[in-house]
Simulated scan of single mutants.
Amino acid sequence: MINTFHTSYNPPPPPVPPRAGYSRPRPAGNTSLVKFLSVMLLLLMILTFGGFLYLFQKLNVQFQDSYHEEDFVLKRLQDCADSGMGEESMTECGKLMEKYKTVIEKVSQANEKLSKLTGGPHFIGPAAHMVALTVPKDKASDFLKTSSLIWDKDHSLLQDVKISKERDKLTIQYPGIYFIYSQVTFSRNTPSSSLKQSIRSTGPKKDQFKELLKSFCSLNPSTSNMCTASVTGVFHLEKDQQIYVTVTNTTLVNRDSCSFGLFKLRY
């Protein structure tokens, strides 16, 4: 059979085989620049990590040195408490304490500035300011028979200091060095004894009695004047030590002008 089908489509010619030694050209790029930037980024990461590691090790060493130094200083302070140390060692202890006092004073000043800025209290610590109880609630009680002054708890200041059930003694809760003061005004005189007030203390054991301070004043029996006896002092007080004020005779006292207080010194 004879094929009579005809078309005008001509197939493309076959591709020309490449010549020997010929290679297709590659598009121009920035391969060298990319490699350079990659190397620089890697070096930057290594330097950054190394710097952080160096700073961490340096701070760690400084912290350990500071800790060991503080531990050494604390041990030296404990040794200073030994009464058998020589004069040279005690001189060194004195210098050490002066340095600590300077640091503590700076910290206290910073805390005071911070308190003023924040509106907080300017003094934080044990303190008391007592005013005398004017009129006894029960005149038939031993209120007027005791030689100790009774204080008005409701109108007094008490901070980290306790008052006894009888309201005559203040009990120390935190040991330390305290400033103590008292003022007693007498409105009448007695010919049998002098007008005297004294600040006394008892320790945790009831037999540990001390008279810390005392003062006197005198009145002319023919006049109606008043006299005031005042005392102040600084003492080291122990925990549970009690402080109170006694007078010659409570019936001779003008209770409107009597006060008693203390506060712990900061150092």
Rank of each mutant, 00 (worst) to 15 (best):
E92R: 05
Q78M: 14
L149M: 14
V103T: 00
C217V: 04
I150M: 04
E166R: 08
L265K: 06
V39Y: 08
K214N: 15
N220W: 08
P11M: 07
N30G: 10
Y54W: 13
K106C: 07
M45F: 07
L43P: 01
T91P: 00
S193L: 10
T248L: 05
C80P: 02
Y181Q: 07
L149N: 00
K58E: 04
G94F: 04
K75V: 00
Q109A: 09
E105I: 00
Q197N: 05
V16T: 13
V16G: 02
K137G: 09
D142Q: 11
Q241S: 06
P12K: 01
P14G: 00
L74Y: 09
G86M: 03
D82E: 02
K239R: 15
L265M: 14
S257P: 01
S164W: 03
T232D: 09
V34T: 10
K205V: 14
K162W: 12
D256S: 15
T146H: 03
K113N: 14
L252K: 05
G51L: 15
L59D: 09
L195G: 01
N220F: 07
L114T: 13
H236G: 10
S259W: 02
S224A: 05
S182G: 11
L55A: 11
V184C: 03
L53W: 10
T171M: 11
M40V: 15
S215N: 13
S198I: 11
E69Q: 10
A20T: 09
Y100K: 14
C80S: 04
A127E: 03
M90D: 04
D207I: 10
G120H: 07
T223L: 13
H68V: 07
M90P: 02
P18K: 00
Q241R: 03
T4I: 13
P17V: 05
L47Q: 01
K35R: 15
S89D: 09
V107Q: 06
K264V: 04
D71A: 08
V131H: 04
P12C: 03
Y67T: 11
Q241P: 02
S156W: 01
N60K: 14
I163E: 08
A132W: 04
G176P: 02
K239P: 04
T190H: 08
T48P: 05
N111Y: 11
A110I: 09
R76K: 14
P121R: 10
G120L: 02
L33A: 14
P204Y: 10
A128E: 06
S108L: 14
K162H: 13
L262W: 06
S156V: 00
G29M: 08
L265C: 13
Q173K: 13
K106V: 11
V61F: 08
G125K: 00
F36L: 15
N254E: 15
